[in-house]
Simulated assay, not measured.
Amino acid sequence: MLSQDKINRINELSKKSKTIGLSIEEAKEQTKLRKEYLESFRSSMRNTIENVKVLDPQGNDVTPQKVKEAKNKKYLN
């Protein structure tokens, strides 16, 4: 998870870019922070999806095969 300081900085840079604009250094920092945020988000989402088990109303496991394979691959590595 991304630290709250970094999230706050992303928001500051976003507001500044909409009002007065960013310097070249700030634009590079914004790009770097956004990339880091997206990597963190994707990792978290992937982890959530890999730990999901889908059940139908009768209680049968209907988890998609792709999710099962990803989970098995994760635990084998």
Rank of each mutant, 00 (worst) to 15 (best):
S3E: 08
Y37W: 12
Q4G: 09
F41D: 05
K35H: 09
D56T: 08
G21E: 04
R9V: 06
Q30G: 05
S40G: 10
K15R: 13
Q58D: 14
L33M: 02
K16Y: 09
V67N: 05
Q4C: 02
N51F: 00
F41C: 02
N11L: 14
K66N: 08
S44D: 03
T63P: 05
I10R: 13
K53G: 00
Q30P: 02
S17H: 07
L76N: 14
T19K: 05
L76S: 15
V67A: 06
Q30S: 13
S40E: 12
E29K: 12
K66H: 05
S14Q: 10
N72S: 14
E26W: 07
E26L: 03
F41G: 01
L2Y: 01
R34L: 14
T19L: 04
A70T: 04
M1P: 00
K16C: 01
N11S: 13
D5I: 10
K15T: 10
K74T: 13
K73D: 05
E69G: 03
N8E: 04
K71L: 11
N77C: 02
E12M: 13
A70D: 10
S23T: 15
E12N: 13
Q65I: 14
A27M: 08
E26Q: 14
V62C: 09
A70S: 12
L2G: 00
K18M: 07
E39N: 09
E36I: 14
K18P: 00
T63L: 13
P57Q: 06
I7S: 08
I20F: 08
S43T: 10
K18C: 02
K18S: 04
F41E: 08
E39G: 02
T48A: 14
I20R: 12
E39F: 01
N11F: 09
G59Q: 06
I20Y: 02
N77W: 06
T31A: 15
E69Y: 08
K74S: 13
L38D: 06
V52E: 00
T48Y: 10
I49F: 08
V54Y: 03
V52R: 07
K71E: 10
L22D: 00
K71A: 13
K73P: 01
I49E: 01
M45P: 00
A27F: 07
Y75E: 15
S44R: 09
S40D: 11
Q30Y: 15
K15Q: 14
D61K: 11
N60H: 09
K35V: 08
L22V: 05
Q30N: 06
E39D: 08
D5V: 12
R9C: 06
L76C: 07
L13M: 03
P57A: 10
E25R: 15
K32N: 14
I10M: 11
T48E: 08
K15S: 13
E29I: 07
E50M: 13
K16H: 04
R9H: 05
I24P: 01
S3K: 10
L76T: 11
N77P: 00
T48N: 05
P64H: 01
L38K: 15
Q30C: 03
L22G: 04
G59F: 04
L38W: 14
P57W: 04
G21A: 04
